[in-house]
Nucleic acid binder design. Structure first.
Lengths: 178, 178
DNA sequence: CACAAGTTTCAGGAATTATTGAAACTTGTG
DNA sequence: CACAAGTTTCAATAATTCCTGAAACTTGTG
């Protein structure tokens, strides 16, 4: 599979797929997700059929170890499903294709890994007692309280998005905001 | 300044500051922002007074070059202001402390750098013509259209947040969602 | 139980990204 | 204009993160 050179309008489906996989890899990278993880996800997002580890390895030219670990991680995020075929030992994987579900999975995973621990630390830091006459203390305390507030608001918003009904989601997200 | 070891409840303001700076650095890293950038930002967020490059270097134990480049980048994001003191050549920097503004700056910068280019590529890929009877093409086209739709919705939401009045922001963000 | 087919693990190497530090540059001043 | 005080640049290096590949493991089968 080619490099997916961007900015050249794709002529064939294979080119377009390669460009999409490349795009997803680059985007992932700039949001702290490893290139391979994003690319395996992209590959499966545009595959109508389930793919085996073997398929993934060869289509993305990555090692067996990398493919295996990456697939397991995506399963952990809830972005992939195993497809077991009777009489075959080999495992196949399909991506969750519903972008609302995909969004929910990503929000859930990142909230759990990053936002929640961060909030715990902030809570602890914000309680530090101190001298209200000390400018240093006041600056620290005010900033921490403000950040805490923002973190709490984000948390609640994300939780709501995560649990929302599809209809609620589109109602609010579209009618209200756009 | 110490390492900011987390999970140990801070006893002094200096410890708490160090922990906050550490936290911000770690969080930045997992969202694709360099540790130093996040830490310089954190340092200035909790400093009541403006700091010079010299101050930043010594408080975070980083090199002059690193401090200079980082400060410039934060200025570019709109997260820092220069403070010039009459009769002094040295430049001082203050952080934007209003977390709503901070949020807007971050949204603006990341939208411009990541979301916008991505949307352009998606638009191009989604227009690829093809055979509706081909499962491969259908999978590609459907996924791309869905992602495009999500990207457009996010774009609009972020734009609205970015430009919103403070009152609108809190009204919607709190009353409606939480 | 020996083997085949497939999966997982992980130490070490490769690739990427961040940081340093010294030299070049700018700018105000006597 | 020479100097001092400060800032920026960037090639070299350090640190981090990612990926490979081979060995160990698992599991179904004759």
């Amino acid at each position: 599979m080619s490099t997916g050179n961007p900015d050249v309008p794709p002529q064939t489906l294979a080119e377009a797929k390669a460009q999409f996989i490349h795009l997803w890899g680059v985007s992932g990278t700039s949001w702290g997700v490893s290139k391979t993880l994003a690319q395996v996800h992209a590959l499966l997002l545009v595959s109508p059929a389930a793919l085996s580890t073997e398929d993934i390895m060869s289509q993305l030219t990555i090692s067996r170890g990398n493919a295996s670990m990456t697939v397991r991680e995506l399963l952990g995020w809830g972005l992939l499903y195993k497809e077991l075929r009777p009489g075959e030992r080999r495992e196949y994987f399909v991506a969750e294709k519903d972008m609302l579900q995909v969004t929910r999975c990503i929000i859930r995973a990142r909230k759990r890994r990053e936002l929640d621990p961060m909030k715990r630390t902030l809570d602890q830091l914000a309680t530090l007692p101190g001298d209200a006459a000390d400018a240093d203390y006041r600056a620290f305390h005010t900033t921490l309280t403000d950040i805490q507030q923002l973190a709490t608001a984000s948390d609640k918003l994300l939780t709501k998005l995560m649990l929302a009904e599809r209809s609620w989601f589109w109602d609010k997200f579209f009618k209200l905001f756009l």
